[in-house]
């Protein structure tokens, strides 16, 4: 099980996968908007998206869990 975490504080701009999707290593899971920049947050390992813990528009802090991926 892999926790995908926010690498910096920001707003969740777009969620680009859905629960149940198969994702590859380095595939974007969500895109944050922070410091006026698009910040893609990618999976570190491939697997299946088990849970998405944020909604678009949410504020997340650095280190917050965004999604859970099962190998």
């Amino acid at each position: 099980m892999q926790e995908v975490k926010a690498m910096m504080a920001g707003n969740v701009w777009k969620i680009v996968v859905a629960v149940g999707d198969t994702v590859e290593e380095d595939q974007d899971i969500v895109i944050l908007e922070s410091m006026k920049m698009e910040i893609p947050i990618a999976a570190e390992e491939s697997g299946t998206v088990k849970e998405i813990k944020v909604a678009e528009g949410d504020f997340v802090n650095e280190g917050d869990v965004i999604a859970i991926i099962e190998a």
Binding site: M7, M8, S34, M35, M37, I39
Partner: peptide, 9 residues
């Protein structure tokens, strides 16, 4: 820019 938007930490 690909990591943390290239912001300085």
């Amino acid at each position: 820019p690909k990591m943390k938007g290239g912001v300085l930490f």
